[in-house]
C-alpha cells in the first residue's frame, strides 16, 4: 500500500502558543473536513468509537461544555460530564483528587475548565492522569479552542471555499473590551499573530493588563479612532460582571457610550467588516442588538465553527499511537 499521510498528533492542547503556523493551519483544515461531515446524511464519524472524553467543568460554561459534548459525540466518543456545582468540589475536593477520581473511571481525554490560570498545564504535567488534556479555559490565561474557532470563522468568512491551507496574513483585527480578564483575547492575540494577522486592542486603560507591552499588538482606548481605521474584524468582548470586583469603569452606561458597539458606531463600520463576539452577549452593553443580528455578524458562525474545531482537536489528541495510554 502506498504511504498514507502520517503526522504527529497532539498530546494535549493547553495553549495556542504551543502551536506554530503550520500546526494551527492544519487544525483549521481538519476542522473544514469536520464541518463538511455536518452536511452528510449521517453527520457522525466512527473515529473515536470506544474512547471516553470527560468534561471537567470547575466553572460554569454551558456553551463551551455543550460544544465539546457535541463534538465528542459526532466522533462517536462517550462523554461523561462533571460540573463543580453540586459536586464534591463544593465539599472541598482538590483538582488532583477530582481528576484522579475521573481518571480511575477510565477516560482517554479530559476537557478542563478551571478558574485558576494554568490549571490545564498543571494537570497535564502533574502525572496524576494519563489522559490527554484539552484546555477549555483556565482563569484569565487562555481558551485555545475559542482562539482557533475565531480564526476558523474569520478565514471562512474571508476565503469561503478557498480557505483550506491559508493563514490570516494581512487581516486587521480589532479586539474591544475587557482585555485584562479575557482568556479569549489572549488566545486570539497569540494565535492571530502566529497566523500573520495584525491585532489592535481597544480598552479602558484599567482593563488592559500590565504586561500588554510585551504582546505583539498595538493598543489604544479610542474605539472611534479604531473604527475610522477600518478594521477587517471587530471583536467585542463580554463585560464579565462576575469578574468586575473593582472599579474598572464608572458605570455600565458610561462603558457602553465609550467602548460599546452602538447602532451609531455600527453604522460607521465599512461594509464587509466582520462583527464577532465570543458570547454570551450583553445586548445593549458591549454590543447593540442591531449589530449582533446584522449580516456583518459572524457570531452564529463562531458557534458552528466551535463544534468543528473541537472535533478536530479531539481527533488529534485521541487518535494515533502517540496519544493516550
Amino acid at each position: 500500500m502506498t504511504p498514507a499521510t502520517h503526522d504527529a498528533g497532539l498530546r494535549n492542547l493547553l495553549s495556542v502558543r504551543d502551536l506554530d503556523a503550520a500546526a494551527a493551519v492544519r487544525i483549521l483544515d481538519l476542522a473544514e473536513d469536520m464541518a463538511e461531515v455536518a452536511t452528510r446524511e449521517v453527520p457522525k464519524l466512527p473515529a473515536l468509537r470506544g474512547r471516553t472524553v470527560a468534561n471537567l467543568f470547575f466553572e460554569d460554561s454551558t456553551r463551551t461544555r455543550l460544544s465539546f459534548e457535541a463534538a465528542a459525540k459526532r466522533l462517536s466518543a462517550d462523554v461523561i460530564t462533571f460540573s463543580a456545582k453540586g459536586s464534591s468540589v463544593s465539599k472541598g475536593e482538590s483538582l488532583k483528587d477530582t481528576a484522579q477520581t475521573i481518571a480511575a473511571m477510565g477516560v482517554d481525554a479530559v476537557v478542563l475548565r478551571h478558574s485558576a490560570s494554568g490549571a490545564a498545564r498543571v494537570l497535564a504535567d502533574s502525572g496524576w492522569i494519563d489522559a490527554a488534556v484539552v484546555n477549555a479555559g483556565d482563569g484569565t490565561h487562555e481558551h485555545p479552542t475559542q482562539g482557533l474557532l475565531d480564526a476558523f470563522a474569520m478565514r471562512k468568512r474571508r476565503h469561503a471555499d478557498a480557505s483550506r491551507g491559508r493563514d490570516l496574513a494581512g487581516l486587521r483585527v480589532t479586539i474591544v473590551g475587557d482585555i485584562l480578564h479575557s482568556r479569549v483575547a489572549r488566545s486570539n492575540v497569540w494565535l492571530l499573530h502566529t497566523l500573520g494577522a495584525e491585532v489592535h486592542l481597544v480598552a479602558p486603560r484599567t482593563l488592559l493588563p500590565a504586561g500588554v507591552g510585551a504582546w505583539p499588538v498595538t493598543t489604544s482606548s479610542d474605539l472611534d479612532a479604531a473604527i475610522a481605521d477600518e478594521p477587517d474584524v471587530l471583536m467585542m468582548l463580554r463585560i464579565q460582571s462576575e469578574r468586575m470586583h473593582a472599579a474598572y469603569f464608572p458605570h455600565e452606561r458610561e462603558y457602553s457610550r465609550q467602548w460599546g458597539l452602538t447602532d451609531e458606531r455600527f453604522g460607521r463600520l465599512p461594509a464587509g467588516t466582520m462583527v464577532m463576539h465570543p458570547g454570551p452577549m450583553n445586548r445593549g452593553l458591549e454590543i447593540s442588538a442591531k449589530a449582533a443580528d446584522s449580516d456583518a455578524s459572524v457570531i452564529l458562525d463562531q458557534v458552528t465553527s466551535g463544534v468543528s474545531i473541537r472535533m478536530a482537536v479531539l481527533y488529534l489528541v485521541l487518535s494515533g499511537a502517540a496519544a493516550g495510554a
Binding site: H6, R26, E32
Partner: peptide, 10 residues
Amino acid sequence: RGKPTRTPQP
C-alpha cells in the same frame, strides 16, 4: 489507535 495520527483528506 495503533498508528501515528493520520490526517484526513477532503
